[in-house]
Simulated scan of single mutants.
Amino acid sequence: MGRGGSHRTVPGRPLRPAGAAVTARLEDADFVGRWFRHRMTRLGPEVADVRMHDVRRLSRGVSRQTWSVIGSVLGGDGRWSEREYIVRRDHEGGSIIPTSLRTEYEVYRRLNGSAVPTADVLWYEDEPGWAPDGREAYVRAKVPGDWLLPFIADDDPELDEARVAASKEHLDKLALVHTLDWEALGFGEVFAVPPSPAECAETLIGSVLSRLAEFQFEPSPLLAECVAWLRDAAPRDCPRVTLCKGTNGHGEEVWSDGRIVAMSDWELAVLGDPAYDFAQVQEMIPEIHRNGRRVWGLPEALAYHRERTGIEITVRRVEFYRRFYGVLQFLYCHHAAALVHRKEAAPLRFVWTAAEVGYHSRLRLAGVLGIDPLQEAPA
C-alpha cells in the first residue's frame, strides 16, 4: 500500500494488464489506475480520464475487506478533481458472513435512486484479469461523512436534546427502508419472501437454517433447542412485510451535519418484520430518564416510527428478534468455524470469530432458554 502509480496518462497503454496473476494486486496503485480506466464509463459520462495515487486498507469491519481508493478524474470541462472510491471484497479465505458479496452489491444497486440514502454502487468486478488478486469485488462511491457520534452514549442532561434528535433522524431513515416498495425494486429476487406477514418469523428461521445446512460440519443440540423454542414463540401479528436492513445504528451509517447521508452494512438484510431492525439497533435508541420521568426509550421510538410509517411494532416482537439474534450469530460464527475446520492454517480473524465470538453466541442461545451457564453451579 502507498503512493506511486498512474500520475500521468500514457497514450496507447494497453487496457488489459499483462501478467494479471502477478500485477493485478489491489494494493498496487498502478494496476488500480489501469483497472479504473478500463471501467471509466462506470465513473460517469463526464469522466475523460482517471489517475489513482493512493490505495489503502480500512480497518473497520470484520466480515469482509474494505479498501479506500483515492485519485483524480478529468471532467468534460478539462479540469481534474479528486475523488475517493470504496472497494469491497471477501478475505482471501472467504467471508465470515455467509451472505454473498454479490447479494450485498445487489442490495446497493436496487437502493440507488430510491428514497433510502446509500452510496452509489458503480460496478461488480468478476472479469478474469481485472478482479484484484483474482477475487471478485465491487466498487462504490465514497460518501463524505463520519460514522462516529461522540455524544450518543453520553448521559449528560445537556446532551439529551441532541441524543433524541439523532435517534429520530435514525428512525426517519429506518422508516424510509420500511416503507420502500421492495417488490417494485426487485428485492423478491434477492431474499426469501414470506408468504404472508404472519409468516415472517418462520420464513426467517427457515431461511437461516437452509443457509446453515450448506456448510454445517457438526451438530448443535443447543441450537436445535433454541430453534424449537423460537418456532413455538414466533409472533404472527406482524402487519406488513418490509425490507429490513439488519445491523443498523451507531457505527453502521454515515453522518454529516446531523443527518444520515448513507446507510451502510446490508449484510444481514432480509424481507420480513420491521421489528427485526429494532432488535439490532446499536445505541441509537438511548434510554433517558430525568427526575423520575421517561424522556426517551424504546416505547417512544416505536411510537415515533408508527407516526412515520403507520406500522405497529410491539415490544414483544422486538424482544423475540433480540432472542433470534443468537441464531444469526451462531450462523456466521459457524460459517467462520467451517472455514477453520477445512484449512490447516486459517486466518486469525476466522479463528477468533469461531472461538471467541462463537463462545458468546452459545451464551446468547442459552439465554433464549433461560439458562445462564456462567451462573449455573457445576454438577
Rank of each mutant, 00 (worst) to 15 (best):
Trp130Asn: 04
Ala141His: 09
Gly370Leu: 08
Arg79Pro: 00
Pro195Asp: 12
Thr179Cys: 03
Ala165Cys: 09
Val69Asn: 02
Ser220Asn: 12
Ala198Met: 00
Pro11Trp: 04
Leu328Cys: 09
Leu243Ser: 08
Ala213Tyr: 04
Thr179Phe: 03
Val315Thr: 15
Val143Ile: 11
Arg316Cys: 05
Ala303Lys: 10
Glu376Phe: 09
Leu348Gly: 12
Val208Gln: 13
Arg3Thr: 14
Phe36Asn: 08
Val47Cys: 03
Tyr304Gly: 07
Arg37Thr: 04
His91Val: 00
Thr66Leu: 12
Val340Trp: 09
Cys226Val: 15
Gly61Asn: 06
Ala354Arg: 01
Glu218Trp: 10
Gly5Tyr: 06
Trp35Arg: 11
Ala228Cys: 12
Leu204Arg: 12
Pro194Glu: 01
Thr179Tyr: 04
Gly93Ser: 13
Ala275Glu: 01
His289Lys: 05
Val261Ala: 03
Leu339Pro: 01
Glu46Cys: 09
Ala213Met: 10
Gly258Thr: 01
Trp182Arg: 01
Pro347Leu: 03
Ala119Arg: 07
Val327Leu: 06
Trp266Leu: 11
Met263Ile: 13
Glu267Thr: 00
Ile285Gln: 03
Thr179His: 08
Ala131Gln: 13
Leu223Ile: 00
Gly326Trp: 03
Met40Gly: 08
Leu204Ile: 14
Arg110Asp: 02
Gln216Met: 07
Leu111Met: 05
His178Tyr: 00
Ser59Leu: 04
Glu82Lys: 12
Gly93Ala: 15
Glu218Phe: 08
Val177Ile: 07
Leu171Pro: 07
Ile205Val: 10
Ile371Ala: 06
Asp277Ala: 05
Tyr124Asp: 08
Gly5Met: 02
Glu27Cys: 11
Asp277Lys: 00
